[in-house]
Design a protein around this nucleic acid. Structure first.
Lengths: 214, 214
DNA sequence: ATTACTAACTTACGAGTAT
DNA sequence: TATACTCGTAAGTTAGTAA
């Protein structure tokens, strides 16, 4: 693990406006390295085309090259995107009628209590079924599910349920739910929310709805 | 020269919103490295406290830790400052009457033509003398001067003049000028500009004026 | 498919020191 | 003072594989 190169570069980039003469010892002090290493790094940065350099007896004159400025912009754009972009993957679905399975399962107290504590909301006792154009496998495969544990009763056993938090129509938090054992088709997904979504958004079969997997 | 660490980190930071499962081979491809190196780097990043990691058969689940997010913010702040901050060193001076030397030198055609071509403006044929509280040595010592070459006539020789571009009162571009051989005191500086600054700003002896060394 | 260990090789680091 | 060369040691890289 070695962030020295970027630290040296950013130190120069930040300070090159107020001065152009740096000493290798000064930079070494700032980034926690030796004078010799900085001397070498400056020559490498120059060879790399990121800085223009002229050593003098007073220190080393340093200017960022156009390539250096371009690299700086890339770092800026990348860190900015990482911090502020909200490009959650989006799913478009069309309301359809399900088998009613989901509603039954959600209402089971052993599941219901887990939904409340693990998802952070009290689900409406029903699910909304959506038909999607493309299978959502690729999206959820790359996300970490919230796992609702299964349980056993005298009569039968109930499997796990995998949940993925979503934002419905950019307004309401909810979750995609995937029962471990399911009879659903792959292009039909089931969602739960704290409210009755059909009423909330005035939905009927065929209505279009957007989900962001957050 | 090795920017791999930061590239790996930024790639994860940028993509962790849309997915949490990465493969070492995928990251290796992006940053131009081997699968083995990325495997090691991820373990190092985890040890360093920047990411939380859980390898699975499908890939490696990765989340940024609070420390990772904090580090990301530092990179962002630093690159942003380097790109957009305009913190030029500022000098505050008080108008005083000089020896008239400067005005004479500036008007000499051998110097005047160089001022025009090297500074990018046609100087007013006079200089403004300023008394400063602190010597400006430390500021200009770290900047690269524009050098006006000396010349020789039959009568005598004229030395170099060192110029530092400035912004006067945040409005007018000008330059600090330091004759190689000067009788000026160290806390008195001389500036030139495309206009008569005394008229432009209605200055009299003792008037305060600000300069940014750009 | 994955991740990650081993081992051989390459590169980086910095104390001493020259310039 | 400054930069930077030498060189012994430390750390990083990756092909070949194991798991």
């Amino acid at each position: 693990m070695n962030f020295r190169d970027i630290l040296v570069f950013l130190y120069i980039a930040e300070n090159t406006k107020s001065k152009n003469i740096f000493s290798t010892a000064e930079i070494a002090e700032v980034v926690g390295s030796s004078q010799q290493t900085i001397s070498r790094k400056l020559r490498e940065l120059e060879k790399f085309g990121l800085i223009a350099r002229r050593p003098t007896v007073k220190g080393t004159e340093i200017l960022l090259t156009p390539e250096g400025k371009s690299f700086l912009k890339k770092i800026y754009a990348s860190s900015k995107a990482a911090l502020f972009s909200s490009e959650w993957p989006t799913i478009t679905g069309f309301v359809c009628t399900g088998l009613g399975e989901g509603s039954y399962y959600v209402s089971l107290p052993q599941y219901y209590e887990q939904f409340k504590s693990k998802l952070g909301f009290q689900p409406f006792r029903g699910t909304l079924n959506l038909k999607t154009k493309r299978p959502v496998d690729k999206i959820v495969d790359n996300k970490i599910p919230i796992v609702i544990d299964g349980f056993v009763t005298k009569k039968r056993s109930f499997g796990k349920i995998f949940c993925y938090p979503i934002l419905i129509e950019d307004k309401i938090r909810g979750a995609l739910i995937f029962p471990e054992r399911s009879n659903q088709l792959k292009d039909v997904i089931e969602i739960i929310a704290p409210v009755n979504l059909r009423k909330e958004f005035g939905l009927r079969d065929g209505s279009k709805i957007s989900l962001k997997v957050i």
